[in-house]
Amino acid sequence: MKTYLTKQFYGDYGDRESVKESSGIAADSARDWPLWEVFVRSKMGLDHKHVGSLHAADARMAIENARDVYTRRQEGISIWVVESRHIHASNPDDAASFYDPADDKVYRHPTFYELPDELKAM
């Protein structure tokens, strides 16, 4: 079976570079703390939404920094952080073939079905 998911790194590095494996807890001037992606729920009943990324030594620090950076004006009531290296993503180069199974299935949309106007509320 063909595997569609390749490991991609959203934030830290460009598409050609590979990311260093160790999450490391680097602090010297040449290396950065690990990168974290931040997701914020703006109010109860809504999904957590990706808002950006930041560097932090650990998860707790990432959450505290995310609060200071992304919720200074009451933009959130809940924060998720996940280390960027743990995010897997589909590959944009494969987008055409990856999503094409949905291209010819218009019958999945309600507007595909022609029904008389007398039919209300459907």
Binding site: G11, D12, Y13, G14, D15, R31, D32, S53, L54, V69
Partner: peptide, 19 residues
């Protein structure tokens, strides 16, 4: 400071490190 961080993060997606 926050604005600096948003922008550094955006630049990092292009392959340059913060350091």
């Amino acid at each position: 400071a926050g604005h600096g961080l948003y922008l550094y993060s955006a630049a990092e997606t292009l392959g340059i490190s913060r350091a």
